[in-house]
Amino acid sequence: MATLAPSRPPMRDRLGRLDVRVSPYLYIAPFFVLFALVGLFPLAYTAYVSLHDWHLIGGQGEFVGVQNYVDVVQQPRFATALRNTFSIFLLSAVPQLVAAIAIAAVLDANIRARTFWRMGVLLPYVVAPVAVSLIFSKLFADQSGMINTLLGMVGIDAIRWHADVLASHVAIASMVNFRWTGYNTLIFLAAMQAVPRDLYEAALIDGANRVRTFFSVTVPMLRPTIIFVIVTATIGGLQIFDEPRLFDQLGQGGADRQWMTMTMYLYELGWGAQKSFGRASAVAWLLFVLIVVIGLINFALTRRIASAGADGKGGR
């Protein structure tokens, strides 16, 4: 008796199955294609340039290997730029995180005109970085700045904001905090509004006040958002350029490069007196590796703290 061959599914069913399998990849493909063009390709090309004696005027030179990296690391300005970058980053990231959480907690409370205040904290982020830098450079002027004028009214000697290392870092960090605190505040505010209100009601029934509720309920629920803000602040803080570049009229990071950051040093190597794209690319790759390493360390530490807090909460 002859057996009948199994009939093939209709074309419509086969196309439907193919669509289910392929369409998700087609939907996300534009992002990866664009990222490869504007992200991966420049990154790989920068690594290629960093291995050559490449100049702005002369173009590509001979292959020198890691010599550009060795020359850059041995220059004293590299250590100065690295110190300044970390100093400004810490002076801006830590106060910014604390202030953003505190302001978000106030905006999350039952206050009048909440929409007005929530829109207000975002205004500094909308202002152009050039305008913010120019205004703050005048506020922190050594001779006629408003900050020194106010300090003189209370009997405090004028601070040399453009001469002392720490003072210049504090002034530049103030610009960064002014621009980015409101942005991070809205991120924390959105996370706070997603916290179930039943938790707050249970805490109030147990007799916890607002401060205890904030640290025992709000902060633990914000751990994923805190991790996100810390990682993004690290990536942005180590690439700071606009604020220190426009802090004075010369844009060189001070007479002794006392506030020159890594990105400013990169700019000076590529478009300054040396005009060495090879060394500038080497600095760019060193900065990239540094950001990745510090970002991974921050992510691992915050994840460990978050998991430890969750385990402790579950144990209780």
Rank of each mutant, 00 (worst) to 15 (best):
G152L: 07
G155I: 12
G155D: 07
D164H: 04
D164P: 00
V165S: 13
L166A: 13
L166H: 11
A167Q: 06
S168A: 14
H169L: 07
V170R: 06
S174T: 12
N177V: 15
W180C: 04
Y183A: 07
I187M: 09
L189Y: 02
A190Q: 09
A190K: 08
A194S: 14
P196I: 04
R197V: 12
R197P: 02
L199V: 07
E201C: 03
A202E: 02
A203H: 11
A203F: 09
G207A: 08
A208Q: 10
V211T: 13
V211R: 14
V211Q: 10
R212C: 02
F215K: 06
S216N: 10
V217M: 06
T218Y: 03
V219K: 08
P220L: 05
P224T: 09
T225C: 04
I226V: 09
I226Y: 00
F228W: 08
V231F: 01
T232N: 12
I235D: 00
I235F: 04
L238R: 03
Q239P: 00
Q239C: 00
F241K: 12
L246G: 02
D248Q: 09
D248L: 09
Q249D: 10
L250N: 12
G251R: 13
G254K: 05
T263Q: 13
M264W: 01
Y265D: 02
Y265I: 04
Y267Q: 12
Y267P: 00
E268F: 08
E268L: 13
